[in-house]
Design a protein around this nucleic acid. Structure first.
Lengths: 209, 209, 209, 209
DNA sequence: GATGAATGAGGATTCATTCAT
DNA sequence: GATGAATGAATCCTCATTCAT
């Protein structure tokens, strides 16, 4: 019974390394143009072995979404729900995001999702309903709460949440698509600090429309 | 001796209809997965005829960039350069953008560019330097000018320009990737009106950092 | 009735120029790889016009054989039949051949025939029976006659004829295949003068076997 | 970790059988008209497998040259260099050649080379400089040596070498192009015996020009 | 008669997937 | 479990041939 546990752990580990290889190949060439052979080579296994762990190219794609997207979303939602005020939440978020974008695999995943959304409409819809919309909802609710507590006067929290999120998408895509090597061409932290300032400055003034 | 069996105008028209078909196929399936056959069928010509007008799939891709991206950028830059004040420019832009996104082909093109950036690094870099960076530069210069005229106090116009642009990218991708059919799921005009309010509200306060 | 005659002459002229263009294209690329388009361009007509004169690519090939091979063969056979002695015939021939090879289209035709013999077995067989074998037969009969007249003692005129002809084939192929530009790399006239000397020297000694 | 599922020997064997299949297809239809599919079928493998061993049709062509031409040339040059006299060399050669032509694949290769010389000028030039010219040079040098030893009086060994070789080319092409089935239509051995006699008879008389 | 735009069958090549070792 | 050889469906692209102008 013990050996099984070890074997399972090793198996999970291998699955993981395959998925990371797939992430990079899908990111670099797109799903359709990526070759199973290259994915196998990238994690130093044979094509045959690859199929021992994932039954098809599609399975790889789905495994990838599962592996990377879900945890990030949990993190973000947790962050929103634990926030005591809209302002502190925005501060936390605008400091957290540059790190996620700069270091993480999220830009790669976003790029893949966008590029292959036509091929996997169900996956993308599923991603939308289980990852993106809950995250946006958590943000909106935060602003609803802060409106009720009197901290803010945001007349459309749903839209405001989208404004909050926009530079994340912009930066992720910029990094994934336009950055030459690692050089973004602008200072990500400063961008989000500016974003933070603009947002906080707008928390109280929405009524004056 | 060589009567032009088909007029140049008709030829250009046909090229155009082919490019629009390609736009849709590339958009729906991605460049790699799109089939030349399907592109041909979509504009009711044969595969052979398609190759009379474009020598390869790549040529189709490049033609697309030329057709769609360039004009939009000219329009945007013109808009920025004719602006008499930062505020009026922002108003114009935030009213113009929802229309571009809702009706135009820009979201499709952006989606294609992102999805296939790995396959066409040169095209994407070229797009970056000839379309995106000039547009961002025009925006930045607008804010530089309004800073000098005393209208605004924006301490980093380059980054501010990126904040201004972020919801355009966000909305374009949302439309191209997540929208079910035509339903965006939120009110694009309202979003940009909110964006406009937040931005204008921030034109004077950047110094208080 | 007159206009018809002129028209027919013009037609024949045009057919001829087409065939010469075809000769060069077939020679340069082989029958299968040659393009009708290129043949048309080479004689400054359109592809459509080409088909007014020849119904198919095959028809072009057949027309070519007809045009070039037959006359040469007539010339050669005439030469053999008019010869008064084996020796004078050999002299005439070995002086005639270098010119044919150096200036004429025969090497090109031979090269085409060889290269595409697999695709047109009937044409090649037809060429063999109507052009080559009669020519070889004329040669053989010449030697039979000279044997009977006592001029020569060739015990196998059929094989001797083939020896006589060998350097023609060798040179034709060398020119068509290996010559860089026009430079054969050796002196064709000298080769055939040597050939002549060797042959004449052998006319009397075949009995000593 | 990477057991060689197939031995190197087996791999080489397979490559060989593919090349022989390619030889026949190229021979029968010409390079351009030969179909990869047919080559594969001829050696009972799939098209995909064919590409495991040769990356392209061109690679197949080049492999063929390597496989067949080189060894023959080595054999011929060795023969010339080991000869103790011009006469014995000619005897050896004229007895060896009918066998090579009758049984070997050289006629097929020669036919292919001629037919596709326009498509592969580099290959043909390479073949000329590495196979044909060395062989001709070896022959010439043999006659130079025999001239010096007093055995022969050949005033132009380079041209004489070409005369020696001519019936080889003639016979090879006759077999590849004109022979119906296996029947050449004449006696190859006798032809070369006659050739031998004519040549040997000419070794001493060249001076009398 | 002449043109060249249009067609689509045909062929080289790639690559996801299978399976014997 | 691991391997990589083998397969063949799928897709880009070419080019002989047709036909409306």
């Amino acid at each position: 019974m013990k050996p099984r546990a070890i074997s399972d752990a090793a198996k999970a580990e291998k699955k993981n390394s395959i998925l990371l290889a797939a992430l990079d190949e899908f990111y670099e060439r797109g799903f359709a143009a990526a070759r199973m052979d290259d994915i196998a080579k990238r994690c130093h296994i044979s094509k045959g072995t690859l199929y021992l762990y994932f039954n098809s190219k599609d399975a790889l794609f789905n495994g990838l979404i599962e592996l990377i997207a879900k945890p990030k979303q949990q993190q973000l939602i947790g962050m929103m729900n634990q926030a005591t005020s809209a302002q502190s939440a925005l501060v936390t978020m605008t400091e957290f995001m540059p790190v996620v974008i700069e270091q993480g695999q999220l830009p790669k995943l976003i790029k893949i999702l966008i590029g292959d959304s036509g091929v996997f409409p169900e996956v993308v819809q599923n991603y939308k309903t289980t990852v993106i919309e809950p995250a946006l909802a958590a943000l909106s609710q935060l602003f609803h709460r802060s409106n009720q507590s009197g901290e803010t006067q945001i007349d459309d929290p749903e839209l405001f949440a989208r404004l909050v999120v926009s530079p994340v998408i912009f930066s992720a895509i910029w990094k994934a698509v336009f950055a030459s090597g690692d050089a973004l061409g602008f200072d990500l932290k400063k961008l989000f600090r500016l974003h933070q300032k603009v947002l906080i400055n707008s928390l109280h003034i929405d009524q004056e429309k």
